[in-house]
């Protein structure tokens, strides 16, 4: 289990233990974190799991693949350099303490 902190749009921070191998999206929806939808179930088909990964640590993550980059174009909230689709980021122990900011809208 790895500790991840999700910061909801209005500022509320929720810290969750996410099972290794689960995605940031699954960690959020299975633990009641508001602000991530994940309508397509994690198949990179909807862009409703858009998040902003802490800029200080985003370089630790494997870079997005083409399908994620394509889908990010559809994100509802502004796309930033630290935008990722949460369903494409798998959690593992080296990510402990990662902070993930959620946008104010997903649709």
């Amino acid at each position: 289990m790895t500790t991840i902190t999700y910061v909801e749009a209005h500022g509320q921070a929720v810290t969750v233990d996410v099972a290794d191998g689960w995605s940031l999206m699954q960690g959020a929806v299975a633990n009641g974190v508001e602000g991530i939808l994940g309508e397509c179930g994690g198949s990179c088909a909807c862009a409703t799991c858009h998040c902003y990964v802490d800029e200080a640590r985003i370089g630790e993550l494997p870079p997005p693949a083409d399908n994620e980059l394509d889908m990010l174009e559809d994100a509802a909230a502004p796309r930033r350099s630290n935008s990722r689709l949460a369903c494409q980021v798998k959690v593992h122990s080296a990510m402990a303490g990662l902070i993930v900011h959620l946008p104010d809208r997903q649709q």
Binding site: S23, Q26, C40, G41, G42, S43, C44, A45
Partner: peptide, 8 residues
């Protein structure tokens, strides 16, 4: 389902 094969 869930993951890459989640229902199209």
């Amino acid at each position: 389902g869930s993951g890459v094969h989640a229902c199209l």
